[in-house]
């Protein structure tokens, strides 16, 4: 039953997104704009500063993620469908999990475009270790989206929700950004230090486990008035 609800919510979000592609297109365009703005700000004499590529990649992911989170839940607000979700006897944590997986999928899709773009524009060997990179991106994205999905969902009831989402989200996800950026820049060095990578990955995995658990636990009380 729990799994079925997760699947239904995920499939529903996927179908809506495939029909309109609104979030995907706007988010991607925004992320690319971010990368370009950073390129103009940081690239000097045709060269990006050392390790700059990792930071730019993660900033673009964080910004695009905020946009996607806001948009996805704004959509649930339009015809008050979130109310309908909450009225159903379905387990609320399952609704959260379905939403979370949708956001992670959307961000992962955006990352498949962003990574080659950043690698190309900043001459960064991002794709030299694809498995490690995929692991870092996945764990980082899950951590960011786990906190983001809960906050975006609970802010639906709040006033000024558009500005409050980044205000609440960024201070909490700082560890994800630090770990993501550091781990990615380890990958960019000529000799990859797998010890460092493992430390950062372990941190990201712990963050994911703790915050997904906390979100599942608090979703119910946070969504009832």
């Amino acid at each position: 039953m729990f799994g079925r609800i997760v699947w239904l919510v995920l499939r529903k979000d996927f179908m809506i997104e495939v029909r309109s592609l609104e979030t995907a297109y706007t988010m991607l365009f925004f992320a690319i704009s971010c990368v370009l703005v950073f390129a103009f700000a940081l690239v000097q004499e045709g060269r990006a500063p050392e390790g700059g590529a990792a930071g730019i990649l993660w900033i673009a992911i964080a910004f695009a993620g905020t946009l996607a989170l806001g948009r996805t839940f704004e959509r649930e607000r339009q015809a008050e469908t979130l109310r309908a979700l909450l009225l159903a006897p379905a387990a609320r944590p399952a609704v959260y999990l379905g939403k979370l997986l949708g956001i992670v999928a959307l961000l992962s899709a955006a990352e498949t475009v962003l990574v080659p773009l950043v690698a190309l524009l900043f001459q960064a060997p991002l794709l030299a270790h694809p498995i490690w990179l995929a692991l870092i991106l996945l764990t980082g994205t899950v951590g960011f989206a786990a906190v983001g999905t809960l906050f975006a969902a609970m802010l639906i009831r709040a006033r000024s929700r558009d500005v409050l989402l980044p205000v609440l989200l960024y201070p909490i996800t700082v560890p994800v950004i630090i770990a993501g950026v550091r781990a990615t820049s380890v990958l960019l060095e000529p000799d990859v230090n797998t010890g460092f990578l493992q430390v950062w990955l372990a941190l990201l995995v712990c963050f994911d486990v703790v915050f997904v658990t906390l979100a599942l636990w608090t979703f119910e009380p946070l969504m009832t008035d």
């Binding site: 529903k12 809506i16 309109s20 959509r75 339009q78 015809a79 469908t81 109310r83 309908a84």
Partner: peptide, 12 residues
Amino acid sequence: VLGHDVFLYPEL
């Protein structure tokens, strides 16, 4: 519940 809004996803 039939709400004030239709509770339907317009894209679907």
